[in-house]
Simulated scan of single mutants.
Amino acid sequence: MITPLFYIKYYQIQLTINKIISQNYFIMIYLTSICFGAIHMTNYEEVNVQTFLSVIGRVMGGFYFAFIVTKYSLKSSYLLHAINNIIPFFILLGVK
């Protein structure tokens, strides 16, 4: 919570962060996509080859959401991620 406020309050820091992101754009895309996939490893009880292969799809999803952020906005990416999560949620509710 402090970081976004710090980012907004200090314009020079905002410019510096934006410069770092724009200079390392593709590295940031790869890094955030891999982190997105890694975060989803917590959805599984144990880590094995099958889990790792499942996470590859999440990494690909991370690339897709990064593309959406680049093309449209962060809000659009959040919305698509929410839709992506809510569809299986409703299916699971219907099964139970």
Rank of each mutant, 00 (worst) to 15 (best):
M1G: 15
M1T: 14
M1K: 14
M1N: 14
M1E: 09
M1W: 05
I2S: 10
I2K: 12
T3F: 15
T3R: 07
T3E: 13
P4K: 07
P4W: 12
P4L: 08
F6D: 13
F6K: 08
F6W: 04
I8H: 06
I8T: 09
I8C: 02
I8Q: 11
K9P: 00
K9D: 05
Y11M: 03
Y11P: 01
I13C: 02
Q14M: 11
Q14L: 06
L15A: 03
L15K: 10
T16D: 15
T16I: 14
T16R: 15
I17S: 04
I17H: 13
I17K: 08
N18L: 14
N18A: 13
N18K: 15
N18M: 14
K19L: 13
I20K: 10
I20L: 15
I20G: 03
I20D: 07
I21P: 00
I21V: 09
I21Q: 08
S22K: 15
Q23N: 11
N24C: 07
N24E: 10
Y25T: 07
Y25W: 14
Y25M: 04
Y25F: 15
F26I: 09
F26T: 09
F26S: 07
I27F: 11
I27Y: 15
I27C: 03
I27A: 11
M28C: 09
T32Y: 10
T32L: 12
S33R: 03
S33P: 06
C35D: 00
C35E: 06
F36E: 01
G37R: 05
G37Q: 05
G37A: 12
G37V: 06
A38M: 13
A38R: 02
A38F: 14
I39T: 08
I39R: 07
H40W: 08
H40G: 02
H40C: 04
M41H: 09
T42P: 00
N43S: 11
Y44A: 05
Y44E: 12
Y44H: 14
E45Y: 09
V47A: 02
V47Q: 01
V47W: 10
V49W: 12
V49M: 13
Q50K: 14
Q50M: 10
Q50D: 11
T51A: 14
T51I: 03
F52H: 02
F52Y: 09
F52G: 15
L53A: 12
G57I: 02
V59M: 10
V59Q: 05
M60C: 15
G61E: 08
Y64K: 02
F65L: 12
A66E: 12
I68Q: 04
T70R: 11
K71S: 06
K71E: 08
Y72P: 02
S73G: 07
L74G: 05
L74T: 11
L74I: 13
K75W: 06
K75D: 08
S76V: 02
S76T: 04
S76H: 08
S77Q: 00
S77E: 03
Y78P: 00
A82L: 13
I83L: 14
N84H: 13
N85L: 07
I86Q: 06
I86V: 12
I86R: 05
I87D: 08
P88H: 03
P88D: 10
F90Q: 01
I91Y: 14
I91W: 06
L92S: 05
L92T: 04
G94A: 15
V95N: 04
